[in-house]
């Protein structure tokens, strides 16, 4: 290839790099524009700061607070608190809960805010975190298990 060819090659390299930079910028802008819409659920703090209108279908996600699950007399209605460390929202749900629905574990509730500020859930989804711990470690306290996992990092 002569020197003209090498120049064309460099020209293409610069053009493609510029196009890539523009593309990446456009992608980041689009993602920035989507940052609130693309979230799958409201956190309790977001719900407290900017409550959705009563009756509008929304999702609420957070931690099921320890000791907050109360089963009603009918046996299928439960009440619990969902918190994120900053705010807490009371939730009522009637139905079968997923296996992984536990206290001090993540949950996403689909439903709506009732007139009294209680979140009325139609459906519960369990959200687990990124930690994987063998069952044999289950009998350790949660702190010990966490330390054991951190040691392997």
């Amino acid at each position: 290839m002569n020197t003209g060819g090498i120049k064309a090659k460099h020209q293409r390299l610069v053009l493609v790099l510029v196009a890539l930079a523009a593309l990446l910028g456009a992608g980041l802008l689009a993602v920035w524009g989507l940052r609130s819409q693309a979230s799958y659920f409201y956190l309790p703090a977001e719900m407290a700061a900017n409550p959705p209108e009563t009756g509008r279908a929304v999702r609420l996600g957070g931690m099921v607070e320890a000791g907050s699950i109360k089963t009603a007399a009918d046996g299928v209605t439960i009440r619990f608190m969902v918190g994120d460390g900053k705010a807490r929202v009371p939730v009522i749900f009637r139905g079968i809960v997923p296996d992984l629905f536990k206290e001090s574990s993540g949950v996403v509730a689909e439903g709506r805010i009732g007139p009294d500020g209680t979140f009325v859930a139609d459906n519960l989804l369990a959200k687990h975190d990124e930690r994987y711990v063998p069952r044999e470690m289950k009998d350790m306290t949660e702190q010990q298990a966490r330390a054991a996992v951190v040691e392997t990092q």
């Binding site: 993602v31 940052r35 693309a38 979230s39 799958y40 659920f41 409201y42 956190l43 996600g61 996403v108 989804l125 959200k127 687990h128 975190d129 990124e130 930690r131 994987y132 711990v133 063998p134 470690m137 054991a148 996992v149 392997t152 990092q153």
Partner: peptide, 23 residues
């Protein structure tokens, strides 16, 4: 970036929140 039902990555840049038995 977003709240999602899927959990964040367990393995990233030489760190793992996954016990070796799984890793």
């Amino acid at each position: 970036w977003w709240n999602s039902l899927h959990q964040p990555p367990s393995i990233s840049m030489g760190k793992s929140a996954m016990a070796d038995d799984f890793l």
